[in-house]
């Protein structure tokens, strides 16, 4: 990102009459979300055989060598459905992964298409639901990169290359939380 900790100033999602879900994004945030959605699409492209460098690395400017294998994100997006039955798990994956990838692409595409240039996002409930999934996929990818676990203590020095990634993760968390609170009845 290389924005040097530039403040992100979005307004959180609110739900208005007529069941519309609205938030306002700053230009830097539009760029960030578009970039993340695009990289989700690129990574999903690898599910169907495309190849290329790890796209999330480019976002956070971390060298490939310091990263976990990219397939850990894909493993998190496409988890095993059977813990103790590899054969059944393999069958499940064979039958579901294409659809799952397609649906994740739909969610990421909804975000890509849902941000007007003025940054005022207005979503129907159906669109907002897809945004919830798309934002979650981004958090799953970045959280996996950061090796987040329940016991980890966040002690990230500002000079740490991962500090920017934590910043993105926290911002996505804030945005998704506001959206989910609007979606809950």
């Amino acid at each position: 990102m290389g924005n040097g900790g530039e403040a992100l100033m979005a307004t959180a999602f609110t739900r208005s009459r007529g069941d519309m879900f609205t938030c306002r994004l700053e230009p830097s945030e539009i760029e960030l979300l578009n970039s993340l959605a695009d990289q989700v699409l690129q990574l999903l492209g690898e599910v169907v055989g495309a190849s290329g460098a790890d796209p999330l690395n480019a976002l956070v400017e971390i060298a490939d060598s310091s990263q976990m294998p990219q397939d850990l994100v894909l493993q998190r997006w496409f988890p095993d459905a059977y813990r103790d039955d590899p054969e059944a798990g393999s069958d499940f994956r064979r039958y579901t992964s294409a659809d799952l990838a397609r649906h994740k692409r739909a969610a990421a595409s909804e975000i890509l298409q849902g941000i007007p240039t003025d940054g005022v996002v207005r979503l129907t409930r159906a669109q907002a639901q897809l945004w919830g999934i798309g934002l979650n996929d981004m958090r799953l990818a970045i959280g996996t990169r950061l090796e987040l676990d329940d016991t980890s203590q966040r002690q990230v020095h500002p000079d740490d290359p991962e500090a920017a990634m934590y910043g993105v993760y926290d911002w996505l968390t804030w945005l998704q939380e506001s959206l989910v609170q609007c979606l809950l009845p």
Partner: peptide
């Protein structure tokens, strides 16, 4: 259960069939 598990994966939850 496989339908439900696939749906949970669609939402990004970590689900299994057992």
């Amino acid at each position: 259960m496989e339908v439900d598990t696939a749906a949970m994966h669609g939402y990004g939850l970590w689900a299994t069939v057992a």
